[in-house]
Design a protein around this nucleic acid. Structure first.
Lengths: 382, 382
DNA sequence: CTGTTAGCGCGTTCAA
DNA sequence: TTGAACGCGCTAACAG
């Protein structure tokens, strides 16, 4: 419970110079073992912790890692943060939270970026769902601030390492599940197409249909906004169609939109899954508690956070080693270095290393079947 | 898009000394107006942002605010964080996230605290649901680091300012709602009693019953753990009771536990709200999407975050002015300074200032009636 | 192996 | 009103 200790205090107590004390702090090898032990002991005794501020100033790079997040309330974020926090705890880094002011405009976004860059507080940046802000990120990278993208949700700025989930494969699995249940009129509620994840999910949907010889039906494809009301609106449109053309199953590009569908179904007196099957995407925590529990595609959120941060850390330690070399320095990332294409269903452990130059990891998704999917009603079969 | 600018650069460009440039940066009045303008212009031009690191070092206090959070995935946290982020954005402070390693033990907790204290990174700490870690907080406070507690969930360490929701009143309103609907056998699933919020909610339940002359029935009170499985288990126990003594309504101390109740009800073939009414507590976002939408008590989460941070900020600026004086310095907190007891139902704007010495704010909660409450089934009436 | 010196970028004295 | 000098706590260069 002592008060603030400086390295000078420690040095004085140990009878050495500050430089020596600093050396043992930084694990330098060139210190007399016995002296080192003595200093270490003194530090322990007074539970000394070096000032991140000062060392940051001295080295020119702080030991802080910035995390740029959109609205914290977007349900995927907390799980991702959990993964991030887990690996940060293992290191001596601290996390600085930058949240993008959602309400305001362009100006604000570049402001945040400027703050990040100019005050030189952080050593690296992890940008989660940067969306439009992604525009400014390459500039940071060029100025020497390592940046890692997590599921960009926008046009991927080239040359930035990024981590994402295999949205296409997840959507494919979901659609195939529906097809195998016997559905043929399968609707899809897209996310906003300006996000890459939306397009990937749509692509997976299309490919599954195509592989099973089911023609794409444009009237069964609507664009939502990832939120419940949007999903509800699209569903209402589907449910208003004549029974013969009405979809017997709906694949929504987010769980939240699926919630909206459930609301609409109730309004139309349609039972799920008896009258209409439903699949979401994300597997946010509340989905398992819905009545009936929602069948959905799980993103390995925490794992994505972990990977992204490990990647960033390795970038910090070896800024000039782009590509696969980075992967070897991290135990977690190393697991992915070997695998090429996702061949097994053991989701959490497969991923593909897409390109060598800027590292790009795509983590596997898994279909989790719960209770909102069933064979189509009799009148619709065949 | 310039590279890092230091104050020396600015000074050189403006043809003045670094000291002068520093003066205008810190709003010192003793600078020649025209010179000041010139310097300001140059700073703007090169979009110069002072290094938080360096100024922090110089002043001895960084412009960072620490937020101590438990598991990010606890559903209340994101909303609180949103409130916090909103007011942080208005200031020049940044947020540093400290998460308590949930898995490990005592040792870890004090470690986090030590890091926080010793590296002198942050100027103030906002502790959300500190739980057992609250033990260490007063020490920080004594060492000159302002600390604000947000909904302590434990034994409140004396002398620390804290913000919470009016759990008692919320629980009272929920129970009264049930009583007024005609229920008399009202069960309560408590949160863990080691948390103060659980005890307060239980207290509100008891008081409502008492005020309406309904005797407390011990068999209708079970302790849960705030999580769905716990709620489910308790509900199963209730639903297994003979119909004559079985509760016609359940008030769960958290929405998550209410979800568990819904699952159990389905299992027992009981309809909600026809056979059993149900009320939760928290109003987490998914509750409005449940089928049927959950009646619950809303905590003003974001507002709590906002207040807590404003309080902390005012503490930073006037460290020696405890008590009500603080409140006046903040526009948001000032709103509460006048009101004494919550008299109106306009929840978000009433609160009680409990004591003058360590500031204690209790924000109003609101009952949000949705679709899980109804009059008791016929056989149970009267 | 270790001590000495010189900053990192900024705030704050002191004189001028 | 302004400038020069010093120090925050630490690291990095260079000696010894």
């Amino acid at each position: 419970m002592s008060t603030r200790m400086t390295i000078s205090d420690i040095a004085r107590l140990a009878g050495v110079s500050k430089a020596t004390a600093s050396r043992v702090l930084n694990q330098k090898p060139d210190v007399d073992p016995v002296t080192r032990e003595r200093i270490l002991r003194i530090m322990e005794e007074h539970n000394f912790v070096p000032s991140v501020t000062a060392s940051g100033l001295a080295v020119g790079k702080g030991h802080l890692i910035g995390v740029l997040v959109p609205a914290l309330t977007w349900p995927l974020i907390p799980d991702i943060m959990r993964g991030i926090a887990e690996v940060v705890e293992e290191t001596s880094y601290e996390l600085v939270l930058y949240s993008i002011k959602s309400s305001n405009h362009e100006r604000d976004r570049s402001d945040v970026i400027n703050r990040i860059l100019a005050n030189r507080l952080i050593a690296g940046l992890l940008a989660i769902f940067p969306g439009q802000s992604a525009r400014y990120l390459p500039a940071l990278q060029r100025q020497g601030l390592p940046v890692v993208l997590l599921d960009d949700q926008g046009l991927p700025p080239e040359q930035l390492p990024w981590i994402t989930a295999d949205n296409r494969a997840g959507a494919y699995a979901a659609t195939r599940h529906l097809i195998e249940l016997g559905h043929r009129r399968i609707a899809h509620i897209q996310g906003p197409l300006k996000y890459q994840v939306s397009r990937e999910r749509f692509q997976g949907y299309c490919e599954a249909l195509q592989d099973y010889g089911i023609p794409l039906e444009p009237s069964l494809i609507l664009q939502g906004d990832f939120m419940p009301p949007g999903g509800r609106a699209c569903a209402c449109q589907f449910f208003s169609m004549p029974e013969r053309t009405r979809p017997t199953a709906i694949f929504a590009a987010s769980d939240l939109m699926a919630y909206g569908v459930m609301g609409a179904a109730e309004e139309f007196g349609l039972r799920i899954p008896e009258d209409t099957s439903l699949i979401g995407f994300d597997d946010i925590s509340s989905s398992s508690h819905m009545r009936p529990p929602l069948t959905t595609v799980r993103q390995p959120l925490a794992e994505m956070g972990r990977c992204a941060l490990e990647l960033l850390l390795s970038l910090l330690e070896a800024p000039d080693h782009p590509g696969a070399a980075l992967l070897r320095s991290s135990p977690l990332l190393a697991r992915f270095a070997g695998s090429s294409l996702p061949q097994s269903q053991s989701a959490m452990t497969t991923a593909t290393l897409e390109s060598a130059e800027p590292v790009r990891l795509r983590l596997a998704t898994t279909l989790v079947v719960r209770a909102t999917t069933a064979p189509p009603p009799c009148y619709a079969r065949l």
